[in-house]
Design a protein around this nucleic acid. Structure first.
Lengths: 392, 392
DNA sequence: CTGAAAGCGCTTACAG
DNA sequence: CTGAAAGCGCTTACAG
């Protein structure tokens, strides 16, 4: 910039003003500056210099789950990202997807990685409690907004009441469905190719009014089919990032570091408890479809299992694939319930708890931008809606 | 950092060395520095300062299509991003999704937006020729790798031969399918819930050996069903970013600024031409499912249309939804062919040209990182594979 | 409307 | 193993 100023016969301040377009420059001079810059091959002001000087980078750091690659396999994460991106685009803020060493628990290495990011604030989605990357971000003392988890004192959060939503959804399935709240099954969705997976039992449900009382109302039907399910497998992707796979006991659940997973499982268990159904919690231990399939497979080894409550749609969809491959009738033999309300769930007729994912992202992003402008955004709890479709 | 140095009784260089972990510091001193930093509330070295000093930011700028929000609705873009992210994660490089004013053609505003990014290089996917954001990025003279398009002299590119792949796929469909290359239809895919959309005509195809000769071999079947399709609607999301919607003439196609769209359409048309089938090109003019549905609807108004060749899976899936809603038999009355090979296409049994999207992303990212290290990566053409499934 | 000056926060080459 | 010094590229408050 100094060279351009020299060559153009103006001060460096004038070159800067030409680019920032502050209007503090006569058009003629401005054009002249640009012409000289072009001639010298000056690429325009460097972002690094401007960031250092202004204290603003125009980017926010985004951390999704603890492995970006897996997040991009999860439709729920992508929908959330879409909400974030929409606001970013409108406000011309870049989204910096931050990397950190995966599987490494060395706090120093993770912290260093987070520190490298040139960002004005952080958006954190669904990271485990105490994750070093979150702590490193918090230590930066830059604005931060949490989505779903972890919960951090004094840091605004956007979320839903996962525990209550899971509890109510579980209760509804165990009771045979609450009156009037179910979605329309076996009908083409608007955005997809219109294929709906209605199993043979897809149309059978109790008359709404009759099922309100809770469990014990077993519908007449072929072998094992019942709306009052008795043995539930609760499937969860991960409760804590320690590689555990398979059955989960009460102590492990209590100590779970994944806020959302913990709450949803707790909600499902409360529903089972209230309905007198037996529940087994099985943890996939990872986020790949293969992990999910293995967990579903383990669930089906439970003697007499007649319902699967999955902590996310992704897990539920993998369970459906496993059931389909084994020729198990859904929901005749096994009911399946998801959580998230992804587009894919609607497409295949998966019963689920719908949460406004795109809005979650856009709200969080707006809150973060407000915080960057030194406003003081408040935490926000969004509503959920139970969508009973063909799999329950 | 100066304050920490002062308080710790060391030089600023020593504080810096403590954080960069260069090992040029005795452990005792290092711990002491950290302790003082904690006490003073020093959040660690700022990324902006380090970026300015080292000339590296540790982030690469990513531009996908010309609206991030739409890109995140497209499974193909997300798969590509996953490839990029996997390499970024492994090499600890952040991905900065760059925003630019959408729908604004004011080059100066777009350029300013791109310049703000603190990045070490650019990854560009599927932007229109001459887009001001790409030109602004190129003007920065930082390393750049193009994915699919635009083509820029001297800038390495990762892509496939879209024209040839589309031509061969179109020819195969018009001829009734080449022997031995079709996928397995009506079988559960591995990763999805296993629902496959086999229309009533899903199983009918010519015996491979008989159909090799090309058109004119009309299979016996109900009304209008034929493997030698006669009237093809070629559906494309967008040829140029000017809002055009509906039929496309030769001049518009020739002038198309979206490299990939242009090539795929040209390939489909060449196939129709060779097979003596009549073809009409229809442009959706945007990237939303609604745009795609409208284009599909327009296609179905073509008298006697018996095949839809879509330039992307996303468009083909929207067409399938439209056909399903109208009760049109696929492929009995209308065959549908996509392009991209997304997971969703496999799930619903859509015939498509499969391209290695994840690898495309990971290759491009590796090439960019090599370019940043002053290596000189070469352009790369990846293979495609025709997947004939239930919709043709 | 334009310029001179200061300083944002760091890292590194060099010297000891 | 540690320190003194320089400078990365910019923008802005101030003066004229």
């Amino acid at each position: 910039m100094r060279d351009v100023a020299l060559a153009a016969g103006v001060s460096q301040a004038t070159v800067s003003n030409a680019y920032t377009g502050s209007g503090r420059l006569s058009p003629g001079r401005r054009e002249h500056v640009f012409a000289v810059a072009r001639e010298l091959g000056y690429p325009g002001p460097s972002g690094a210099g401007r960031s250092l000087r202004t204290g603003r980078s125009g980017a926010v750091g985004v951390m999704v789950t603890d492995a970006l690659t897996f997040a991009l396999e999860d439709a729920a994460a992508v929908e959330l990202l879409r909400g974030i991106a929409a606001v970013g685009e409108a406000r011309e803020v870049a989204l910096t997807l931050l990397p950190f060493p995966v599987g490494v628990d060395e706090a120093a290495a993770v912290a260093a990685s987070i520190r490298r990011g040139v960002v004005d604030g952080f958006l954190v989605w669904s990271m485990p409690d105490g994750h070093p990357a979150v702590e490193a971000a918090a230590a930066r003392r830059e604005p931060m907004v949490l989505i779903d988890g972890p919960r951090l004192d004094g840091v605004p959060l956007v979320g839903v009441d996962d525990e209550a939503a899971a509890r109510e959804a579980g209760a509804a399935v165990l009771a045979g469905g609450p009156g009037g709240r179910r979605g329309v099954a076996a009908v083409a969705s608007d955005s997809g190719p219109g294929r709906v997976a209605a199993g043979p039992g897809g149309g059978r449900r109790q008359v709404p009014g009759l099922s309100a009382g809770g469990r014990g109302q077993v519908a007449a039907g072929p072998a094992g089919e019942a709306d009052g399910r008795q043995r539930v497998a609760v499937l969860v992707d991960r409760l804590s990032p320690d590689g555990h796979t398979g059955r989960v006991d009460a102590a492990r659940l209590r100590a779970a570091r994944d806020q959302v997973a913990r709450e949803r499982v707790a909600g499902f268990l409360a529903a089972c408890d209230a309905a007198g159904a037996e529940a087994t919690v099985i943890e996939a231990g990872g986020f790949s479809p293969r992990d999910f399939r293995a967990a579903a497979s383990a669930a089906l080894e439970i003697n007499g299992v007649d319902a699967i409550f999955a902590a996310t749609d992704a897990v539920a969809l993998a369970a459906l694939a496993e059931l389909s491959e084994r020729g198990v009738d859904v929901p005749g033999q096994v009911a399946v319930l998801g959580f998230d309300g992804t587009a894919e769930a609607a497409r295949v007729g998966l019963s689920t708890v719908d949460q406004p994912l795109v809005e979650k992202g856009s709200h969080a992003m707006r809150m973060l931008l407000a915080a960057i402008e030194h406003e003081d955004p408040e935490s926000l709890l969004l509503p959920t809606r139970l969508e009973l479709r063909a799999t329950t």
